[in-house]
Write a protein that binds this DNA or RNA. Sequence first.
DNA 1: GATCTTTGTAATCATCCGATTACCTAAGTC
DNA 2: GACTTAGGTAATCGGATGATTACAAAGATC
Lengths: 204, 204
Amino acid sequence: MPSEERRELVLDAAMTVFGDLGYAGATTDMIARAAGVSQPYVVRMFGTKEQLFLDVLGRALDAIMQAFRTAIAGDPDLPLQRRLGLAYFELTANRGILLCLMHAFALGADPVIGPAARCGFMEVYQLLREEGGMDAPEASEFLAGGMLANVVLGVRLFDDYDSDPAVQELMGAVFPEKLDLIRRSHPPLKAATPARGGVSAPPR
Amino acid sequence: MPSEERRELVLDAAMTVFGDLGYAGATTDMIARAAGVSQPYVVRMFGTKEQLFLDVLGRALDAIMQAFRTAIAGDPDLPLQRRLGLAYFELTANRGILLCLMHAFALGADPVIGPAARCGFMEVYQLLREEGGMDAPEASEFLAGGMLANVVLGVRLFDDYDSDPAVQELMGAVFPEKLDLIRRSHPPLKAATPARGGVSAPPR
DNA sequence: GATCTTTGTAATCATCCGATTACCTAAGTC
DNA sequence: GACTTAGGTAATCGGATGATTACAAAGATC
């Protein structure tokens, strides 16, 4: 297989694994297995795990930027916010894109990932402001809705959809009109979510 | 020192370290050093690193719930959204609280942390709905603003405040009227953020 | 057909990290 | 003063993990 193609496979796998486990929680071996290659090959393709994450982050940002640009250039009969909302909704079909972004956004203190995440975040904001023609409050409100959607996705609220009416209500507010679609593309892992544990008291 | 007191010190340290590095990225040794105790002592106090994170998560949720309850019971001359917004703003004084939550919210696929994070997230939502008397869209919009604030905090956008006018604009929209205060409590780590790196091409 | 490049893997290394064990000291308690 | 308990550490262990090295097989090139 040509290395370009293999590289895409590895990047796809890495996006999924990083998305579920975070940067530090994912291992190059998991990613390699998910991509069907050996662990040393992953390292040699990208140099370091850190660089692999940066590449995944760049790919996720590219996906968002492209989706937004397409939406901005789309059907002018629909209001812009609606077009962008639909575009964002379509991005949720791939958990990895948005979850890797969220992990990166939470690692601002990292000396390498932090600057890249800041830069990417502001790139998206600038796209909304300049190419989208939004003013600051509009762009900020749109971003806020996106961040909430990311969290709902990241925390896997769908997993409790059937058992918790409050989850149904909240998700209905976060993904208006699109709930059925989003649930179909994110089947629950398992059913019950118990209460959060109290204070630990380990035996000596 | 009584162990209760020591426990609080360790929980404080853990909240900071977990907040900056994430669950998997933080080590029990870093937390121990930050708290001024030995690494085995941290493990023995909480049983496992995972349980320590759960305790930190619970403590962060308690802080939010209490802040919101106080705000709800507060000065009725101010609108509720404003009171809650101010309460949330005060929470940002401790990065750890909100960043640990964000890390937990991004780990929904974890079999132990995921359920706890879902439960905590819904607890906050229910508080806004029931005790706060908000309807679903109001609560959802408020949460969205909070999640954006968390991301701005997590990605350390302040670090680029002086060098990037777009950052100033966005942060002005996210933290209305409170910018000066929030910047004072979050001094930048260092100045410049370079462009995000391109595609990696390691030497063979 | 010998050589070189590309595409890959098996084996291994050095390090880190969570956890365990064994101990230590000081303060109560009898 | 012997004994117990609480608060704490040094040393260490075993497993995981990112990275490195050495090697191999399949084309391309001459």
